[in-house]
């Protein structure tokens, strides 16, 4: 099997990396690029812990062949906010009890961010639908949903 050169934009930076064509995006991110913020909860697209944003859409990186990222713009949790200025979703997750064990958190934040990047005034139903692919076993989702609503509000205020 010959290696392929994968070029894409990751968290704003150009990336060029040799991969085998059967690798999945999650493994390139976690193992090759050592961005372990993206979590592996099931490896089958059933829990959302590995959610990243590719070309503006939340996807399960465990179901995306890495080659699909070719020329794409990929965002992972490592590219969201900074300690100087957290993303509003990070802020509200941290302050409103939306984080417990933290294992679903990066994926959850990516799903929420993808939603709010597109729509800063989502309905409660839209929030539920956007997060339903992200399993959280700790929180019962109550505070997560409130945090997303509050982040939306913050983002609307900024606009």
């Amino acid at each position: 099997m010959s290696l392929k050169i994968l070029k894409f934009t990751l968290n704003g930076d150009p990336i060029e990396i040799a991969i085998s064509p059967d690798e999945m995006l999650i493994d390139v991110l976690r193992d090759k690029l050592e961005l372990t913020g993206t979590k592996k909860g099931c490896g089958k697209g059933e829990c959302g812990a590995c959610t990243v944003i590719m070309n503006g859409e939340a996807v399960n990186s465990c179901l995306v062949p890495a080659m699909k990222a070719s020329c794409a713009v990929v965002e992972t949790i490592e590219g969201v906010g900074s300690t100087d200025e957290f993303h509003p979703v990070q802020e509200t997750f941290m302050d409103m009890g939306a984080i417990q064990c933290g294992f679903c958190t990066p994926g959850m934040i990516m799903s929420a961010k993808a939603l709010l990047d597109r729509n800063t005034d989502p309905t409660s139903k839209e929030i539920k639908k956007s997060l339903a692919g992200n399993i959280c076993r700790c929180t019962g989702y109550v505070k997560i949903k409130k945090a997303v609503q509050a982040a939306a509000e913050k983002m609307r205020e900024k606009q």
Partner: peptide, 20 residues
């Protein structure tokens, strides 16, 4: 209800887990 002390690491994906 202060901000959890593990919140920053967990919200930024830098918190350490065995599987990482």
């Amino acid at each position: 209800s202060v901000r959890r002390l593990d919140a920053v690491e967990k919200a930024t994906g830098t918190a350490g887990f065995t599987s990482d």
